[in-house]
Design a protein around this nucleic acid. Structure first.
Length: 270
DNA sequence: GCGAGATTAATAAACCGGTT
DNA sequence: AACCGGTTTATTAATCTCGC
């Protein structure tokens, strides 16, 4: 709709490039997105509306990202090569294969985020090697405890875990059928653990004891049955009386709801 | 082998970014 | 444009992996 997308003038292109470069210089290339860069650009330009030049700017951003990430990659490759050559000899492929390394460079940010897992044993070989190298570095750097680095909380933040349900199925079907007593993770850890529900929560769920996932499920059934989602922002749940008794507020964010649930679950003591 | 940190499992729906 | 998949929130227990 609307007007043909205008191209940026050379002056603008120049100006935008400088701004984008400065944004990229301080940003984490693994997590930065086009949108964020564009937002930063708009902010830098005093809130100027760039929608008319969206396409041209998108290309500009991509071009600058590619250019900068390639520079970074080369820098990393050099330091990597130096570091590794002292420990291990690796076929020095990087220097010569320009095309290959470039490809890796542009692809690296996203895949890097996606994987962070260790389910596949094939990838593990590499992962382990990397872990060992890193462990050595850590030990040299500090006497710090172990790979965790000491932060327990890191778990949640640092490792974006993959969606589980999806993996379960393929995993399940593949070859487990042959070997009945598959070693796979038993039933599902503590997820099935039942809790005593607080009174208001009991009134909502209709059960005195439920596991957390069941409580969530039950809550959503209630929400849908009573159309409690705010139409303008469906993540917001409007509390009816029963809900209010639990959450003590007229509206609750669906994620906060999960958080609040914890206050209404009591461990069952024998 | 033991200890400890890291990871994964289920549950829900919306939203966002990326891909086709 | 439409679709797909990841991310978000919280939780516990079991399991895995690695260091010592």
């Amino acid at each position: 709709m609307s007007e043909p997308l205008c191209a940026v003038t050379p002056e603008e292109s120049n100006e935008y490039t400088n701004i984008i470069d400065s944004i990229l210089a301080t940003a984490d290339l693994e997590t930065i997105s086009r949108k964020k860069i564009r937002e930063g650009l708009e902010a830098e330009l005093g809130g100027k509306d760039l929608s008319a030049q969206k396409t041209a700017i998108k290309e500009l951003i991509v071009a600058r990202f590619d250019a900068i990430s390639q520079v970074n990659l080369e820098a990393v490759a050099v330091s990597d090569a130096e570091a590794e050559s002292s420990n291990k000899k690796r076929p020095a492929t990087n220097g010569t294969s320009g095309a290959g390394s470039t490809d890796d460079a542009s692809a690296s940010p996203e895949p890097a985020r996606k994987k962070a897992k260790r389910s596949s044993s094939v990838e593990d070989a590499d992962a382990r090697l990397a872990a060992q190298l890193q462990a050595q570095e850590n030990r040299l750097a500090r006497g710090r405890s172990t790979r965790g680095g000491g932060d327990k909380k890191v778990t949640k933040k640092k490792a974006p875990r993959k969606k589980s349900a999806k993996k379960v199925n393929p995993d399940d079907d593949s070859d487990l059928e042959g070997s009945e007593a598959a070693p796979k993770r038993k039933g599902g850890g503590g997820f099935q653990k039942p809790f005593n529900l607080s009174e208001p929560l009991q009134a909502l769920c209709g059960e005195a004891q439920l596991s957390r996932p069941r409580v969530v499920k039950s809550l959503w059934e209630h929400i849908k049955a009573n159309e409690l989602q705010d139409p303008s922002d469906k993540r917001q749940i409007r509390c009816d009386e029963k809900m209010y008794a639990v959450f003590k507020q007229a509206r609750v964010d669906m994620f906060k709801m999960n958080k609040e649930i914890g206050n209404h679950l009591y461990p069952i003591e024998e």
